[in-house]
Design a protein around this nucleic acid. Structure first.
Lengths: 120, 120
DNA sequence: TTAATATGATACCAGATGGTTTCCTATCAA
DNA sequence: TTGATAGGAAACCATCTGGTATCATATTAA
């Protein structure tokens, strides 16, 4: 019926991590491929240290992963991340019906091309 | 291609409002129908004032609406709320493909018709 | 009119957050 | 070895956050 306390906390972390424009920008950048911390920090009007902090938030939320090779920390999106978000959205389906439906319409058109899914 | 600054801010507010277990609990409660502030506060181990603050956060994020009749403030879910969230999810489709697909599968089964309840 | 009720407003607090600067360490390259 | 580079660690600061207690106000009921 409801998510356990642990999942609630993970959901807190996930949503909080997403509720920041800089962090979303970092995710958007990483959507184009993995990058080192310095690479990620360079185009942002902010100290490398601050960016590093944001990255740690994203990492703690399970949104990105980090592999250290030598002195370079390479960050990448962790693809399994939004599970909790999805689970939570599912729980709220009753009052988000409309939104989920339009999301579904989009998803059918936009992301499931190989299945040749024909709806409606 | 990208959301304007204003929409970014609204998205910040929306996600931040959702990133709190108490506020999600309030939304869950409101999903069962509108309620007055006191009604919402009663079952929560927290001062009425604190609950009122949470409600104001939800209101500012556009997630709920409030109608004052007499001395009673009745809160209700605002159904158009998750538009920005949806738009944002759409923008991230490239790396959330898998999640959106399973969400779509869910939505096809679960919300399109008023059919059977298949919780799982 | 008086008292109880629903709620907001204000002031206050401790702790978290989001930045900064400075320094340290490890690694790579000359 | 020496120096530059990638990055973390720690200290610090201003502001935000999520609570609290208290008071004010409007409305309803007796």
């Amino acid at each position: 019926m409801s998510l356990q306390a642990h999942a609630e906390e993970r959901l807190d972390a996930l949503l909080h991590a997403l509720a920041d424009a800089t962090r979303r920008r970092l995710l958007r950048r990483l959507a184009g491929g993995p990058a080192a911390v310095g690479e990620l920090a360079r185009p942002i009007a902010m100290t490398r240290v601050a960016v590093s902090k944001h990255l740690r938030v994203l990492e703690a939320a399970g949104l990105i992963t980090r592999t250290v090779t030598g002195r370079v920390h390479r960050c990448a999106l962790s693809d399994g991340a939004p599970r909790e978000l999805e689970a939570w959205l599912r729980e709220y389906r009753d009052f988000w019906d409309a939104q989920l439906q339009s999301l579904a319409r989009y998803a059918e058109r936009g992301t499931a091309p190989r299945r040749r899914e024909r709806a409606r």
